[in-house]
Design a binder for these strands. Sequence first.
DNA 1: TGTATATCGATAAAGATATATCGATATAAC
DNA 2: GTTATATCGATATATCTTTATCGATATACA
Lengths: 195, 195
Amino acid sequence: MLQNGNYEAIFSRIPIYIEYLKTYEEEYISATIIANSLGLGEVQVRKDLAKISFGGKPKIGYEVKSLLDDLSSYMGFDKLTKAVIVGMGRLGEALFHYLGFDRINLKIVAAFDVCDKYNSLDEFKSICEKHNVKIGIITVPEESAQATADLMVSSGIKAIWNFSSSSLKVPNNILVKNENMANSLSVLIRLMNNL
Amino acid sequence: MLQNGNYEAIFSRIPIYIEYLKTYEEEYISATIIANSLGLGEVQVRKDLAKISFGGKPKIGYEVKSLLDDLSSYMGFDKLTKAVIVGMGRLGEALFHYLGFDRINLKIVAAFDVCDKYNSLDEFKSICEKHNVKIGIITVPEESAQATADLMVSSGIKAIWNFSSSSLKVPNNILVKNENMANSLSVLIRLMNNL
DNA sequence: TGTATATCGATAAAGATATATCGATATAAC
DNA sequence: GTTATATCGATATATCTTTATCGATATACA
Ligand SMILES: NC(=O)c1ccc[n+]([C@@H]2O[C@H](COP(=O)([O-])OP(=O)(O)OC[C@H]3O[C@@H](n4cnc5c(N)ncnc54)[C@H](O)[C@@H]3O)[C@@H](O)[C@H]2O)c1
Ligand SMILES: NC(=O)c1ccc[n+]([C@@H]2O[C@H](COP(=O)([O-])OP(=O)(O)OC[C@H]3O[C@@H](n4cnc5c(N)ncnc54)[C@H](O)[C@@H]3O)[C@@H](O)[C@H]2O)c1
């Protein structure tokens, strides 16, 4: 199942480095500059980079271009990842039209719903197999979430991004990332009340 | 600024306990049952509960009702929290109509957009002050995000839930939680490619 | 009443993550 | 050339988080 919540902390920083580096015009950049720009510790930045890329030069820093390449391929952004989405209601529509997945090289190749404006679920398996789809996005109502997950698993999908608040039962080799918005917001409420 | 990403880990587990407990019919529950149902370690559950609630009884467990109360008030769900949302495009609409915020006792009291179907930004400050709004949700395009944040700060908002991928500059006493969906999904891509 | 057991809480150990310190080095300035 | 300095990488320390262990206790049952 691998129902993760806490991943290696570094994984969530790399995309931030990448975004920042894309805006950086010089040929070289130091860990100090990255750290200060992003509000992180410079030792942490240096350690992250050391883990992924080749060394920087004292007094100079890291070469931006090759750093970007290394970070991107570390995250898997160098390869196109294909996804499908099931449940084309308000949230599904929003995600389907969102342009921001481009920069992580993710493409939503098909959208499914019970309503016939979209691909029918009958075609789900064949479309997934044809495109070798790896990621399934679940934006159906709670009560349909488990059935949708089952369909995804039986269609060869390897990872599920779940926006319903159902906790899905899936085989051990399938990744599930729950994107529970209310829970995420509640962390903010808690922190706020603490101040 | 408090531009957090890694909060106390416990904060993100409490809402999960709460959801689970709401479905639990018995009068008492043990850490063992919670842990097994949610795929967590039982020592971890016991430690979390010990931090927040009064003790359980050996061989019996914790009283569900009072546990729920304690966890809810720890998270701040016992008080109504008011939010506003700015940017009523696809994502803004989805969030505005989402019913799941009820269970964390959050109410979106007003929705703003440049389009006149919604509240006008001219009224932003007065509405926020009138309702004593604490949380601002940003779902405007990138280029308007910082201006929106500024408006929120100057209208007395204490915490911002930011869906744009701009990194916002705000005063030190304002909380910002970036909900960068592409970055979140990229963690899943990374984990998947690792298997 | 005594024994077995599920469970708790406390303490200890392990693991993960973040921060601090410092010598080495590449460049720049003198 | 020598010196000053920004930066790196390595090592050490600190903090946070999770997991393991174990004695104490409330109940169930013989
Ligand atoms: N709207 C939000 O901001 C938001 C936020 C967080 C989580 N969610 C969750 O995301 C899910 C969708 O939310 P929404 O607001 O878009 O709801 P919605 O009602 O607008 O959309 C649900 C869509 O799923 C379709 N559907 C229903 N059963 C289906 C099935 N078996 N197979 C395929 N499609 C099916 C419906 O036709 C509809 O188009 C819900 O589980 C909700 O709790 C929504
Ligand atoms: N759609 C998604 O699934 C998704 C996912 C993650 C992040 N985002 C981000 O959320 C934001 C909104 O995305 P969307 O898909 O809803 O876009 P959208 O274009 O559908 O909606 C943007 C809305 O903001 C309004 N707007 C523009 N400038 C404004 C201003 N200054 N003040 C108030 N309203 C203003 C527009 O009128 C429009 O209604 C973007 O920053 C996007 O990158 C979207």
